[in-house]
């Protein structure tokens, strides 16, 4: 064999498995074009970017864009909102999804459970713009469900679309509504994988249902929970653009409490055209998110090897 004479193991593998490697090529190409090429664009953060000159000929201005962004108040507001929402979403979402998953598994398989299961994942299949329209039916003045309810009880109407303080709560509730049911299915898939004999043994030893939930199910789910947690941590600087833009849009009454890094970048991109500064914000976001997930993964690996992602 010709290939056997090649000493380098990697090179030999590239040749013998060339067809297998080739199958990965289209995906690699897409990744290069749509994920890695934009990374070159990061340099725009250090330029006074001019669309006509392009990224090769625009003027370099060092950290000017960052200075401008960090001097203002905006970055504190949007960073706080971004992190706050994600922390709230992760905590409430994981808790509710786990609770639902454990309860449904405990109830066993029957018609009622199947119906509940089907209904609770329904919202996951609805796009955020549609949810945005649903939310209008709830929160709009006069005709909205909530304000009808308040009026029936003789209370004052709430102008949800001008009062920012309600929106963190509203966003958390809609996030739960849309994601918890499907999250529960993911956990149920993990619970199915737990060895049934453990429950059997526990039952023979006289363990109550509560005990087997807390002593078997939850500990066995630990690595799944940690892993999903790590994944969401990488996104903690992600701004939930789809959700917030659908529910809030460019409503300037609400932006103080609802604007995240993503919505801010999205808006600046469409309205201001100051590419350099917008890119500086995006770089700040990517970098901090990246460092967060790397350190979280290190930590997880130290605590429990199975929970680390890589």
């Amino acid at each position: 064999m010709r290939t056997a004479t090649i000493k380098h193991r990697g090179l030999r593998d590239l040749i013998t498995n060339r067809y297998l490697y080739m199958l990965a090529v289209p995906a690699i190409l897409f990744s290069i074009v749509f994920a890695y090429l934009p990374m070159i664009g990061i340099v725009i953060a250090f330029q006074d970017f001019n669309p006509i000159m392009g990224i090769w000929r625009s003027e370099w201005i060092g950290l000017q864009n960052f200075k401008f962004f960090f001097q203002g108040q905006d970055w504190i507001i949007i960073t706080t909102n971004t992190v706050l929402f994600n922390v709230l979403f992760i905590i409430t979402g994981t808790t509710l999804a786990l609770t639902l998953a454990i309860m449904l598994t405990e109830l066993g398989k029957n018609m009622g459970v199947r119906v509940i299961q089907s209904v609770m994942i329904l919202p996951n299949f609805i796009s955020w713009p549609i949810v945005g329209l649903f939310s209008v039916a709830f929160f709009t003045a006069d005709t909205g469900i909530i304000n009808q309810l308040l009026a029936n009880m003789g209370w004052d109407e709430i102008q949800f679309y001008t009062e920012a303080k309600w929106w963190p709560l509203i966003l958390v509730l809609f996030n739960l509504w849309k994601t918890a049911g499907f999250g529960a299915i993911v956990y149920m898939a993990a619970i199915v994988g737990i060895d049934k004999e453990m429950y059997e043994a526990a039952r023979i030893d006289g363990a109550s249902r509560f005990q087997s939930i807390f002593r078997i199910t939850l500990p066995m789910l630990r690595s799944t929970i940690t892993m999903l947690f790590l994944l969401s941590l990488g996104n903690i600087f992600g701004g939930n653009l789809d959700m917030i833009y659908s529910l809030v849009g460019d409503n300037s009454f609400l932006t103080n409490r609802t604007d995240t890094i993503d919505t801010y970048v999205f808006r600046s991109l469409r309205t201001t055209g100051s590419f350099g500064m917008t890119q500086a914000i995006a770089l700040f976001q990517s970098l901090v998110g990246f460092l967060l997930v790397i350190s979280a993964n290190k930590l997880a690996g130290k605590i429990d090897k199975d929970s680390a992602l890589f």
């Binding site: 994920a35 890695y36 090429l37 934009p38 990374m39 070159i40 664009g41 990061i42 725009i44 990488g234 993503d262 970048v265 999205f266 991109l269 590419f275 917008t278 890119q279 995006a282 770089l283 976001q285 990517s286 970098l287 998110g289 990246f290 997930v293 790397i294």
Partner: peptide, 8 residues
Amino acid sequence: LFSGGMVS
């Protein structure tokens, strides 16, 4: 984990 961002 890391992206070039919306602008690029």
